[in-house]
């Protein structure tokens, strides 16, 4: 985390930072495995995004609350314990309220434990800031992940199945490649390039702009 966050920043800035400037997928380019694996349908992408949003926010807050008691040498195992605790909560809740989605993305919800993005925020932000700031940073970062996943899965489901949220929209032969892993890489790469292009064209490449 660079110095600009250490200064007094409003919570709104923190959220915007997470969604745009330090977007997990399109800017930091981490946690790409789930971004490619589950984004073949908007529903899957949305639920995984929600799960990550919740875990990220709660982990950030918890870490910030107990940051003074964590010995620096064993901080990573403790972060992992906190993360896995919250992931278990999300895992059980989604299995209870949306069993059909859970069947498809259950595995990926469990490996939220190992997502680089969550540990990165806990290590780089929450262990150095207060609980309120950390809460909003987690909210922003999680929202950024959610938005990125929904954007990717929107294009992939539309092109690959001709449908959105499971409902058929276009009555043409779908482009099967977009729901396969190869299409996932293509979609992420092209979208990333598109957002970088917007950033360069309209905001001078300072990372200040670019949607999602």
């Amino acid at each position: 985390m660079s110095d600009h966050v250490r200064e007094k920043v409003s919570n709104w800035e923190l959220i915007k930072n997470g969604i745009i400037k330090e977007n997990t997928i399109f800017r930091l380019v981490i946690s790409l495995c789930p971004a490619i694996a589950v984004t073949n349908a908007v529903k899957n992408g949305f639920f995984l995004g929600i799960a990550v949003l919740f875990v990220q926010t709660m982990v950030n807050t918890t870490v910030a609350l107990i940051r003074d008691f964590i010995h620096p040498k064993i901080r990573i195992p403790i972060f992992m314990l906190i993360i896995s605790g919250w992931v278990t909560v999300v895992d059980m809740v989604i299995a209870a309220i949306a069993p059909d989605v859970y069947k498809q993305i259950g595995l990926y919800i469990q490996i939220i434990v190992a997502f680089a993005s969550i540990l990165a925020r806990a290590e780089m932000f929450a262990s150095k800031h207060g609980p309120v700031n950390s809460f909003f940073d987690g909210l922003g970062s999680g929202l950024g992940f959610l938005v990125a996943l929904v954007i990717i899965s929107f294009f992939r489901e539309l092109l690959g199945r001709g449908a959105l949220w499971g409902f058929p929209i276009v009555d043409a032969k779908p482009m099967l490649i977009f729901i396969l892993p190869a299409g996932g890489f293509l979609a992420v790469g092209l979208l990333m390039g598109f957002f970088n292009w917007i950033d360069m064209k309209f905001y001078g490449g300072k990372g200040a702009g670019g949607a999602g």
Binding site: K173, M175, L176, I177, F178, L180, A182
Partner: peptide, 10 residues
């Protein structure tokens, strides 16, 4: 390869 994977039948 792109079109073969995309429209395997055709």
């Amino acid at each position: 390869a792109f079109v073969l994977i995309t429209w395997p039948r055709a």
